[in-house]
Design a binder for these strands. Structure first.
Lengths: 352, 352
DNA sequence: CTGTTAGCGCGTTCAA
DNA sequence: TTGAACGCGCTAACAG
């Protein structure tokens, strides 16, 4: 039925072992022999059997990329960058690796399921992107799973996710974003403009990204002696709708807010819509800031003040590390800072 | 080292075959035996060896999803929906399938490479999303590959992509978007408002989506006796920047354009930015329409008139078909229509 | 309902 | 530089 290595060997009049060697290029093979084998491969249209190869070699060409939400460009951009560094040549037989992205939908269970599936496939590497869920049970389960993956020879890289508490996965490399610093910068920018009554739309609870950005915001408030009124913080998902609803809620609680700090750009867009629908002008009546600087953020009207995260660069780096093509940062951890992008959505508060 | 089926069998005091049966749930097993086996699995923390399983069963739990651009929500939304229907229980051993998305970056070569990789892995199914490249050589190569995949037992589903010319892959199911109809609706909407001088920003050449949407536009023009001036059409990529530059080019060629028809929403956003930067108001000076109705389109200011494609529904359906959980449409082809969403970005032309 | 027996297709020793 | 032989871990017949 399907063409096997043995078929190719017969056609090239060599042993299966030789064909294997040609394909993997790990052993010396006479040029003429190689030539003949490759021709046979071509003529028979032979395709290596991945599972058989993986079984015999005890490792596969699969590399998994876990994302929280594949429909969110935040993850799409990182995943694309990671994949571009992995997809190229460099794998075993045939020269290509299969970089695959798995969508957890932010669900801890699915995250674990995918990790198990990847473990089952004997993946060569796994890259986990985005914030982690801060549930002790789950965090432990993930850390355990990552350790097992590492022990089984799977390289594990965290991209945009803080390292798990040592020594759970001391072997996992982590490229983490300075969410706290970014959060602080944004709020300080607003404070510098004269804002004092700022609403904060946080992401889902129990997520590291949510917590760190919020902490940065509070750090800035504290540093400037501004009281942190709990009523000014609302939690929601990382999507437009959550931003819309949270903004209406914030306005209800405190109608004379002068600024809204959103957990990310998508949420900020929803916030802008809610403000417009409430008859408020941006930034004349209320300033708005986002986070991430996704491509559409510059298209908002007015353009969004935000913190730019080098998603593509970080992803590419994570991909190279996963492939063993780039040195691991000292201590296995690198913190990547964001850059404040001041644009039209922020201005001096109304009274000033 | 790693725990194998045999270890579990020994611990549960049954034969390996029985363990396999319990795991796959395909054969009757006594409840008490099953119990014992599952306990052993748990105690030993056993993880099935995917490659070995795939080798023996001649099929794997892998399902591939090919997308042109993973950073584009158009694909992200479809991929997420497909994956949600596939990721669930229903696979072999362990009950889960590994739905993986592969990013071709729009490159025909990478598309073929991924198909080969998936073929190599003996994927259970493959879903190809988005428009196809209209290059004869490549189309033939893809069709051939798809046929081979089909012959090898891999289910092939096209989602948002027109069926390849029969009989190349007569076995592939195709869910295709009515891009031509959508294009026609948009232009007819503009014509109905009184527009006559419309610029068209098309997607990349040699792509079915590009061609179909453009043809719809031209159909509408022809139906209303409006001459189709080639100078009013510019090609570019499906991104914001292309929309920005193309709009400037269109304005240069014909400053008194009253409307811009963009290949998709992302491009439309770029067009809006270019118009604003040129001092033109939307829709007072120039109307703009997009295509797809991505989530951010309603957030544009003014909100974008566009054609809504049921991306999530289509993806979910494709996923179910790939899993054999939904009937194949008659003839293997289903055309999915879009819905015209009239919003603030279109209005009567200036002179009217 | 369960155990035994053969491979699945390939990588990798060990000799030659 | 090449071939022969073995086993990777599992599933699928076939008996029992």
């Amino acid at each position: 039925m399907t063409v096997t290595l043995a078929d190719v060997a017969a056609r090239a009049q060599v042993s299966p072992a030789t064909v294997s060697r040609v394909l993997n290029g790990n052993y010396p093979v006479a040029a003429s022999t190689r030539e003949r084998v490759l021709r046979a491969v071509d003529e028979l249209d032979y395709v290596l059997n991945g599972p058989a190869s993986a079984l015999a070699a005890a490792t596969s060409d699969l590399v998994g990329i876990l994302v929280n939400d594949i429909a969110d460009p935040f993850f799409g951009i990182m995943a694309g960058a990671i994949q571009s560094e992995i997809g190229g040549p460099g794998g075993r037989a045939g020269g290509e690796r299969l970089a695959v992205v798995c969508n957890t939908g932010g669900s801890p269970e699915r995250e674990l399921t995918y990790l198990t599936l990847l473990q089952r496939q004997r993946a060569a590497a796994v890259v986990l992107t985005g914030g982690a869920v801060e549930n002790t049970a789950h965090a432990t389960a993930v850390a355990t799973k990552l350790r097992k993956l590492g022990e089984a020879g799977t390289r594990v890289v965290l991209c945009g996710r803080p390292p798990a508490p040592a020594p759970a996965d001391a072997d996992a490399v982590a490229l983490t974003f300075d969410n706290r610093g970014g959060g602080r910068q944004l709020t300080e920018h607003l404070i510098g403009l004269g804002h004092r009554r700022m609403g904060y739309i946080a992401g889902p609870e129990e997520r590291t990204t949510t917590r760190h950005r919020l902490e940065g915001h509070r750090d800035a408030l504290a540093a400037h002696g501004i009281a942190d009124d709990p009523a000014r913080t609302v939690h929601g998902r990382y999507d437009r709708r959550a931003g819309y609803e949270a903004t209406l809620e914030l306005l209800r609680r405190e109608p004379d807010l002068t600024a809204v700090v959103a957990a990310n750009d998508t949420v900020a867009l929803g916030a802008c819509a809610a403000l417009r629908d409430s008859g408020l002008r941006i930034p004349d009546d209320v300033s708005v800031v986002g986070f991430d600087d996704l491509p559409f953020s510059i298209d908002a009207v007015p353009a969004l003040t935000t913190v730019r995260l080098p998603l593509a660069d970080a992803g590419a780096r994570a991909g190279r590390i996963a492939m063993g093509r780039e040195e691991v940062p000292p201590g296995g951890i690198a913190t990547i800072r964001g850059e404040l992008m001041v644009r039209g959505s922020t201005g001096v508060p109304k009274g000033a």
